[in-house]
């Protein structure tokens, strides 16, 4: 089943960098751009939902516009040897032209209409 290619442009494309110290919330910004002529619905998923606060975690990106998603890593005991295994996924679908409610769009979505992009996470300590 050919999966629809992701139409959203993600910045960064592959890796979210979080720079410590991790004694307080550390925020990384994920910019989502919709270069198409259609509105696009998106939702953000993660393998570590209790560790991050994501705002907005879903919504509609109008055609030709961008939005910034704040990914807030909650404070934790940082271990430089522990490589972060956390991952994020931006799932998206072209919004129907007569879209009324977003929940309905996700419920009726056919698997082949869904697009997704995955990002890994990297934790870095402040320089010096």
């Amino acid at each position: 089943m050919a999966r629809q290619e992701q139409v959203l442009v993600l910045e960064p494309q592959q890796e979210l960098k979080f720079r410590g110290p991790f004694t307080d919330v550390v925020t990384a910004t994920l910019k989502l751009t919709n270069p198409t002529d259609r509105n696009v619905c998106f939702k953000v998923k993660t393998t570590a939902p209790r560790r991050y606060c994501v705002r907005p975690n879903s919504g509609v990106i109008d055609s030709g516009t961008s939005i910034n998603v704040s990914v807030m890593l909650q404070p934790f005991e940082y271990d430089p040897n522990e490589k972060s295994k956390h991952k994020f996924m931006v799932q998206s679908i072209l919004a129907p032209r007569d879209m009324t409610d977003m929940e309905g769009v996700w419920k009726e979505a056919k698997p082949e209409e869904l697009m997704d992009s995955k990002l890994r996470c990297a934790f870095e300590m402040p320089i010096g």
């Binding site: 939702k43 998923k45 393998t47 991050y52 606060c53 994501v54 907005p56 909650q74």
Partner: peptide, 15 residues
């Protein structure tokens, strides 16, 4: 085999 990553909806409110 590597377990396929399990994704959950991200949370926007207080954790």
């Amino acid at each position: 085999a590597l377990s396929e990553d399990e994704f959950h909806d991200a949370v926007s409110g207080e954790l």
